[in-house]
Amino acid sequence: MAQTATIPKSLWDGGRKPFKATYGKLMMWFFLMSDAFTFSTLLAVYGVIRFASGTPWANPELVFTHFPGLYELFHIEAPLAFVGLMTFILIASSVTMVLAVEAGHRMDQKAVEKYMLWTILGGVAFLSCQAYEWYHFIIGTHGAHHIAGAIHLLDGTVAQFMPGDGGLQIMNGVDHLGVNLMAPENTALFQQLVPAASLLPDGSVNPEVIISGANLTVNQYAQNPSFANLFFFITGFHGTHVASGVFLNYLIYKWTKNGELQRRGHYEMVEKVGLYWHFVDLVWVFVFTFFYLV
């Protein structure tokens, strides 16, 4: 039945598409806009907690230093290199996604299948990278070159220390009152704040009291536990988006493979899910800047 001819052409009877976009695409845009609010709020909360924290924040260059293989085999640290690779993977998968959309416009089923597979591969690779990064964030960097761990001081402060033969070399050693414990005039105060049990007779740090890695109450990277909490929540929330994106991409791949989308006469589903996937990439661009660079 030629229903196209019966569609009313007036503005008020549903005859014209609002914004000249289809229902599905429009709703995807509105959903993404609301999701953008959510992520903006999370990043704004990150900013406000960081600025209000009063104690030194973690330095991402000293936190994210593991690169698979380099670290395990040679103990070489590559600051930010791995997160750079993750960014590259996500941008590349965004490219293959938009290539799938383009192939859909030409009704080229084989090309859509191929590019959807590459996109799914990129998504899975990103999630695997994130699992590796979380693992090392949680277990910490024993004997790493930058931050060996942290200890509790008597006033409740967490003080990071560096490895080496110099015993307890505190970095970021600012306590909750804002006293810089590294300043020479505060050496005596600092000595008082270090619990006796934290040091071995030779002046080195007692391994039993070392805070290593991160959990929800304390972490070795920053005074403020919020640093780890925000890391878990923001990258975790983004990772959840990636995971559901991979699932949606798989559905689209399946519907392309079995010819469903070809039968419909258009590949708009690829476009709609593509919008979501690009959005996930977009969010990562912001997370990358505000969490790893600034």
Binding site: G47, A52, S53
Partner: peptide, 12 residues
């Protein structure tokens, strides 16, 4: 929020 955060904390 960033301006507020900078006001309460020491970050600027």
């Amino acid at each position: 929020l960033l301006i507020e955060g900078g006001f309460y904390g020491k970050g600027w």
